[in-house]
């Protein structure tokens, strides 16, 4: 199968199990949100898919090929990663930073091809960065910098995108726009996996939600099912309700008998 696939993946570090027989798939054309409490294994799952986390057992497939059998360039041509911690050590121009996304295609050197230039221009336009092309990245606002990193990922034009907390630094309107951008890539046939803490946003934008807890996948389905009130009560200990296709979150649920 093309897209992204994790099969019975197990990751253990320093005696701690980070992923426990976790299986998930993201098909081309789908925007899948990976949700769960802190330390549920969401980032580990993303890193495992990218081949950055050695698996104790199980496998990770990019475009149907075991990630361990791919070269770094082969991986980069199949999937682009927007990590949680993103920064550049050097004050590159915005245009150059986005151009680096073409590295695996040979387009980050002195002579980018017409296709490389088109990909960079399209990514800059999609993220509303055309006017900032020559600005140094370290002089931009947090929101603008986040868009530069997203544009770098889009410029790679890979068949899969893995975005870890892409809305972390963003105001609600920008967060919404970012998810719409990723959804548009999914409509264009890309397999998109997004780690998201904002469950309300996830409910509105995801084609499917995968819920994780303690390294395991505990729910996988349409937002309405995966984020059903009984799921959220069990996993997050939080009250919630659905009105139509809108999720509303309530107060923390305190265990019965515990001090309030």
């Amino acid at each position: 199968m093309s897209g992204l696939e994790l099969v019975n993946a197990r990751v253990a570090k320093a005696g701690q199990v980070l992923l426990d027989a976790a299986s998930l798939t993201v098909r081309p054309g789908e925007l899948v949100v990976l949700a769960g409490p802190n330390a549920a294994g969401k980032t580990t799952a993303v890193r495992a898919l990218l081949g950055l986390e050695p698996l104790a057992s199980g496998s990770a497939l990019l475009g149907g090929t075991d990630v361990r059998r791919l070269t770094p360039a082969g991986r980069a041509r199949r999937a682009a990663w927007l990590p949680q911690n993103r920064s550049f050590a050097w004050p590159f121009s915005v245009g150059r930073a986005v151009e680096l996304g073409r590295y695996a295609w040979g387009g980050a050197g002195a002579r980018p091809s017409a296709q490389d230039r088109e990909a960079v221009d399209a990514a800059l336009a999609a993220c509303g960065l055309e006017g900032l092309r020559h600005r140094a990245v370290d002089t931009l606002s947090g929101g603008e910098q986040a868009r530069v990193h997203l544009a770098r990922v889009l410029a790679a034009q890979t068949p899969a995108i893995l975005a870890d907390e892409p809305t972390g630094m963003l105001d609600p309107a920008q967060a919404d726009a970012t998810l719409d951008l990723l959804a548009a890539r999914a409509r264009a046939g890309v397999a998109v996996l997004v780690v998201l803490h904002d469950l309300v946003l996830a409910a509105r934008k995801a084609d499917r939600v995968i819920l994780m807890q303690s390294g395991r996948v505990v729910a996988d389905g349409p937002p309405r099912d995966a984020l059903a009130p009984e799921q959220l009560a069990g996993v997050f200990a939080i009250a919630s309700s659905w009105t139509g296709d809108r999720l509303e979150l309530g107060a923390r649920i305190t265990p019965r008998g515990a001090p309030d």
């Binding site: 360039a73 991986r75 980069a76 990590p83 911690n85 920064s87 680096l100 590295y103 980050a108």
Partner: peptide, 20 residues
């Protein structure tokens, strides 16, 4: 050619196709 890509960090550079 890959030194600029390393500026994004070693793991990110690896994900971008650099053989670190």
């Amino acid at each position: 050619p890959a030194l600029a890509v390393l500026g994004a960090g070693e793991e990110v550079a690896a994900s971008m196709g650099v053989d670190v």
